[in-house]
């Protein structure tokens, strides 16, 4: 009997989750943006993310199935700052969905309004690697920036679905509240390590380090998009040793071996820390993602002390 009830509830939940029942069908290029969209949209939206959390957001294969997945979307949330610039120019037109083409009301560049770090001054040269020419696009690594995204999404959702505008505004406010209170906890957790240095695989911790007062000593990749070579790793390890830097952080989609090798040579540890929601099973949404990052970093930095 109990089983039957559960089954029924599951079916009901599934039915409620199907796009047909949602007022707005939302798709995002990144799981973090999808998570914010879920919080803001609540029961009025169905949300999908094209990039899985354990997938490199710079190199999402532009599969036709992704185009199919957004054929009927009402809103598309892009990271912007060209993080998804390598695949969205195929996937968005490929969807043949006029509602979400760039310039249409359903297309959202989530970076709008976010204070962008590492904006290149002057010209951009690829002699420095595959750098992000519009500034560092990994802004979703600062929880505060997600409040900007939530506000932006609430406005877009309200414009497209005015009957639920009050709910979207209220949800965005509630989301901000959750982030603010959680932020206090993360700040407290990382406060003892303020000023500590870490090495990351890619320059995707810039916003995080800025928020939580960590220092970025260097990267496992010698330049953005350029794979590490033995000589570079040896030099970086030597520099880490000299400076007493012991923590190397990498994502599920980066070369774990190179990260571990570097850490071992420097006498430290390499830890897999997701930068995107879904990167590890524990990072179910943006809040639990930062919970995971906070405790993983505190643990790794604590070991070094």
């Amino acid at each position: 009997m109990k089983h039957k009830k559960l089954c029924f509830a599951a079916i009901l939940a599934l039915a409620l989750n199907t796009p047909a029942f949602a007022d707005l069908k939302v798709a995002a290029s990144l799981s973090d943006l999808a998570s914010v969209a879920e919080s803001v949209g609540g029961k009025h939206v169905s949300v999908i993310s094209l990039c899985k959390g354990y997938e490199d957001p710079h190199f999402v294969p532009a599969k036709p199935s992704l185009m199919k997945a957004i054929q009927n979307a009402d809103v598309f949330v892009s990271v912007g700052l060209e993080l998804d610039g390598g695949w969205l120019p195929l996937v968005i037109p490929g969807s043949r969905n006029p509602k979400i083409q760039v310039g249409a009301p359903g297309f959202v560049d989530a970076s709008e309004g976010v204070p962008v770090l590492e904006k290149p001054v002057g010209t951009v040269s690829r002699a420095e690697g595959d750098i992000h020419p519009l500034g560092n696009p990994h802004y979703y690594m600062d929880p505060k920036n997600l409040e900007v995204v939530a506000g932006h999404l609430a406005r877009v959702f309200s414009d497209l679905d005015p009957s639920n505008a009050a709910d979207y505004q209220a949800n965005a406010k509630a989301f901000d509240g959750k982030i603010e209170s959680a932020l206090k906890g993360w700040e407290k957790e990382l406060k003892p390590y303020a000023g500590s240095s870490i090495v990351t695989f890619h320059k995707n911790f810039v916003y995080f380090a800025d928020r939580f007062h960590l220092k970025l000593f260097g990267t496992v990749e010698p330049k953005p998009g350029i794979p590490p070579n033995p000589r570079y790793l040896a030099e970086t390890a030597a520099a880490m040793k000299k400076a007493g830097v012991k923590v190397v952080v990498y994502q599920p989609y980066y070369d774990a071996d190179a990260s571990r090798e570097l850490a071992a040579k420097a006498g430290g540890t390499a830890v897999e820390v997701p930068t995107e929601v879904g990167g590890v099973p524990q990072a179910k949404d943006v809040l639990s993602k930062f919970d995971f990052i906070g405790s993983a970093l505190a643990q790794a930095l604590g070991k070094g002390k």
Binding site: Q71, I92, P93, G94, R96, N97, P98, Q101
Partner: peptide
């Protein structure tokens, strides 16, 4: 020239 202004058709 391309257009994506028509639903389901490019």
């Amino acid at each position: 020239a391309t257009t994506d202004s028509i639903p389901d058709i490019s």
